[in-house]
Amino acid sequence: MNWLFHFLSLLVEPFSYSFMQRALLSCALIGFTNGFLGTFIILRRQALLADALSHSLLPGLALAAMIVGLSPGGLLLGGLIAALFVALGAQVMARNSRLKEETAVASLYIIAFALGIVLIRFAKVKVDLTHFLFGNILGVGNGDLWIAYGAAFLTLATLVLFQRPLLLTLFDVTVAQASGVRVRWVETGLLALTVLGLVASLQAVGVLLSLGLLIIPAATSYLLTDSFNRMLWGGAFLGMICAVGGLVISFFANIPSGPCIVMLMALFLGAAYLFSPRYGVLFKLIRGRHYHEESLERWEGHQGHDHQVPGKESKP
């Protein structure tokens, strides 16, 4: 038992540092919240829009850094405004010209990203671009933690409260609208929460990897279940486990936490892709494609119980 004790104390040791405690708490909160939100984004088929939004945070962050320095509140606000600007701007462009929405989004986000890199050069304080791009979880301060608490509370409360109209909208926008759901509000709200989720995970994983926390846990859980609720909570818990696990591994392996978290999630996604009992690639190969019983029943219903091919009977 001695080795177990040593192993556990080794595992717990990093958390005696307060910066590590904050990082852990922040990872758990963000992993859970974004994993939960991911289900909605995936079913709305907005994974790539979320990616575009994550890049478009950058000019907002740079502007905030220029004006108010590196305070978490300022960065949050800057990121929110920049992303909403891109999202809504793309809609306006698509509506008023022959450009389709995905073209408008792609153009605007990459322009915003470039603008952000230019603006960062002019920030008052010295800003390390890599911190914005890849996160700096060990630098999580109390302000960042408060934002994580706030984002988690707001996101989870909104999604749980409006789960039914959201579900109707995700399933079929037209039918939801016909049944009296205000789909524009639902869609805009979901977009705003997506941006909030991205901004909240900046410090942990950065602009470029924040999409991972939003998409991969929910995608994994989508491959494992046919129940919306299980997908929702499964994604949330998986996100939390991976964020915390990735952080611990990154500490011991001495590699950056963002990539470590994403790689851990990749492991789960790969396993689900291959081994999911219902939708895994391997099991699909092994199991037949048909509902054999039903197909047989139907055949028998039409043909009686005679399974012989008619032509064969005449042969001696």
């Binding site: 079913l43 995700l170 399933f171 079929d172 037209t174 046919d226 129940s227 919306f228 299980r230 997908m231």
Partner: peptide, 10 residues
């Protein structure tokens, strides 16, 4: 055609 038949719903 407008229904996502892969939606996680029974």
């Amino acid at each position: 055609e407008s229904v996502d038949w892969d939606f996680p719903v029974t």
